[in-house]
Structures are given as structure tokens and as C-alpha cells.
Amino acid sequence: MAELSKEKSEWKVWEVFTQLKTGEPHIHAGNVHAPDAEMALQNARDVYSRRNEAVSLWVVPADQLVATSPSDSGPFFEPANDKIYRHPQFYKIPKGVRGF
């Protein structure tokens, strides 16, 4: 990575998540640079919500985010082929029963 950080003037990266309306989930919006959590929140609001696009903001230091890798997506996400019973299409609902 960059040698420039030896000057101690480069701020950390924080990932920003915004909730557009109450009841909705927080969505990843992008990142901001900030020296600490308070400034990260302020910066996130100025950058991603100055037109009142969010009712709530989360900021997380980028190095604290743990994520899956695409190569994980095999066993992590796919049900094994013998476990198709998780899919609703394999259940028959008797005729006349409502609510499904």
C-alpha cells in the first residue's frame, strides 16, 4: 500500500450504511475518510445525507468489516442437492387452505 501514511496525515476509511426510511434495512452507500467515529458520522451525514436521504446512518471502520469471499459461496450459500426440502415449492398445500 501507499508509503504516504508514514506522515500520519491520512485518515482511516469508514464504510457507510444508510437507512432511507424507518422500517427499511440499512444499505451500503460508500465510504468516507475520518480520524474517528464522531467525525465519521458527521462526514457520512454531509456526504450521503445532506439532501435528507437518510433517517439513520451507520459507520464502521473498513478494517472491522468481515465478508465472505466469492470462492466461499459454494458450501456457504448453496443448500446441498439432497436438501431440496427447504424450498417451498416442494410442499403441497391442500386445496382450499388460505394464507399461503
Binding site: 485518515w11 468516507v32 475518510h33 475520518a34 467525525m39 458527521q42 462526514n43 454531509d46 456526504v47 445532506r50
Partner: peptide
């Protein structure tokens, strides 16, 4: 001093 502050001060 930094892009984020351009936005904050202008705000």
C-alpha cells in the same frame, strides 16, 4: 484540508 471538509464547510 480534505474533501470531506470541503463538503462540511460548504454545508
Amino acid at each position: 484540508p480534505i474533501l470531506e471538509e470541503d463538503i462540511a464547510l460548504t454545508n
